[in-house]
């Protein structure tokens, strides 16, 4: 149907480059990305708004969190994002060998993130800190559980993409889907970057 896309062009990509620039994924995925990011932005704003009414309580509650755990999780997601970005690049060049492997590396980091989050929850609950201990912890559990849900959905996507890129993708629409899945994962990463700053670092 579209023979031009079956062979790599001069940039090594199986997708043709439109002259005005190429939308990552496709236009539709940006409905989801901007929608979800704006929704989280409202949650972040609510957190800071509630914070202004009890700064001392928020600061005291924040001291119960381990900055090292949050930092490790940030590094895990940054690293998984690197693997996924490289995996998407490999997939669009038709590299059926390294794309699935890179997706699996990304997935391994994601599983590490989930495990560490579970450990963090367990630690807090052991010390008797629960959702209604303080408004700070309502936000802590609310935001991180919601984000963790995104990590789980993203991990399923990474697994699916590691299977899908095992064979050569020739249709531009399939490569667009892989790029979109990658963008979703980077969004999960960047939401955590902000959550880490808000919950663990803001004074």
């Amino acid at each position: 149907m579209e023979p031009a896309t079956l062979s790599p062009d001069n940039t090594g990509s199986l997708r043709p480059e439109p002259p005005g620039g190429h939308i990552p994924g496709e236009a539709g995925v940006w409905i989801l990305l901007f929608g979800e990011m704006t929704f989280f932005a409202l949650l972040f704003g609510s957190f800071l708004l509630y914070r202004t009414s009890d700064i001392a309580g928020f600061t005291a509650s924040q001291a119960h969190l381990s900055k090292a755990v949050g930092l490790t999780n940030t590094l895990l997601l940054l690293t998984s994002s690197l693997f996924v970005a490289k995996a998407v690049g490999a997939a669009s060049r038709g590299d059926t060998g390294s794309a699935p492997r890179l997706f699996r590396f990304g997935l391994a980091c994601a599983i590490g993130f989930i495990a560490l989050k579970g450990f963090e929850y367990y630690e807090l609950l052991e010390r008797g800190i629960v959702v209604n201990s303080h408004v700070f912890f309502s936000f802590y559990f609310g935001l991180t559980v919601l984000h963790l849900g995104h990590v789980v959905i993203g991990s399923v996507l990474l697994g699916a993409m590691s299977v899908a890129t095992g064979k050569l993708l020739t249709k531009p629409s399939h490569i667009a889907l892989i790029e979109s899945g990658g963008c979703f994962w980077h969004m999960v990463d960047l939401l955590w970057i902000i959550i880490f700053a808000l919950l663990y670092l803001v004074e």
């Binding site: 480059e17 005005g20 620039g21 190429h22 939308i23 990552p24 940006w30 994002s81 690197l82 996924v84 970005a85 790029e179 990658g182 963008c183 980077h186 969004m187 990463d189 960047l190 970057i193």
Partner: peptide
């Protein structure tokens, strides 16, 4: 940085 390099917004149309 994540959006411009990892998501490849760098190469996207000006609007995006």
């Amino acid at each position: 940085m994540v959006m411009f390099t990892y998501m490849d917004v760098r190469g996207a149309p000006l609007v995006l």
